[in-house]
Amino acid sequence: MTYKLILNGKTLKGETTTEAVDAATAEKIFKQYANDNGVDGEWTYDDATKTFTVTE
């Protein structure tokens, strides 16, 4: 399945997608991606749209 991440960081904003077997796997990938890019904030997930959002 395709999952989407919306980044609302102070210095980085944008979107990315990943292919993952489930939401938990996608979350791990996205949290590593956000960490690698210096984004740390409040996480939400919308199962209907398979979208994670992180807001600093």
Rank of each mutant, 00 (worst) to 15 (best):
M1L: 11
M1Y: 12
M1H: 15
T2P: 08
T2M: 12
T2E: 12
Y3Q: 00
K4I: 13
I6A: 05
I6T: 06
L7H: 04
L7K: 02
L7R: 02
N8K: 15
N8G: 04
N8L: 13
N8I: 15
N8W: 05
G9W: 07
K10Q: 08
T11H: 12
T11N: 14
T11F: 13
T11W: 15
L12N: 14
L12P: 03
K13Y: 15
K13L: 07
G14E: 14
G14D: 15
E15H: 06
E15M: 04
T16F: 10
T16M: 12
T16V: 14
T17R: 10
T17Y: 15
T17L: 12
T18V: 12
T18F: 06
E19N: 15
A20N: 04
A20G: 05
V21W: 14
V21Y: 12
D22S: 08
D22H: 04
D22E: 04
A23K: 14
A23Y: 06
A23S: 11
A23L: 09
T25Q: 10
A26P: 00
A26N: 00
A26K: 00
K28R: 08
K28L: 11
K28P: 03
I29W: 13
I29R: 06
I29K: 11
F30W: 02
F30H: 01
F30K: 00
K31V: 10
K31T: 07
K31R: 11
K31D: 02
Q32T: 09
Q32A: 14
Q32N: 09
Q32Y: 07
Q32H: 09
Y33R: 03
Y33P: 00
Y33M: 07
A34P: 01
A34G: 04
A34I: 08
A34W: 03
A34D: 01
A34V: 12
N35E: 09
N35G: 10
N35T: 15
N35R: 11
D36R: 07
D36S: 13
N37E: 14
N37F: 13
N37T: 11
G38E: 09
G38R: 07
G38L: 12
V39S: 03
V39H: 04
V39E: 03
V39A: 05
V39D: 02
D40V: 14
D40I: 07
G41M: 03
G41H: 02
E42V: 14
E42K: 07
E42D: 13
W43S: 01
W43Y: 03
T44K: 11
T44F: 08
Y45W: 06
Y45M: 02
D46M: 04
D46N: 13
D47K: 10
D47I: 14
T49L: 09
K50D: 03
K50W: 12
K50Q: 07
K50F: 06
K50P: 00
K50N: 13
T51A: 05
T51Q: 05
T51R: 04
F52T: 01
F52L: 01
F52I: 01
T53S: 07
T53F: 06
T53E: 05
V54D: 01
V54R: 01
V54H: 02
V54E: 01
T55A: 09
T55K: 07
T55G: 06
T55N: 11
T55V: 11
E56K: 03
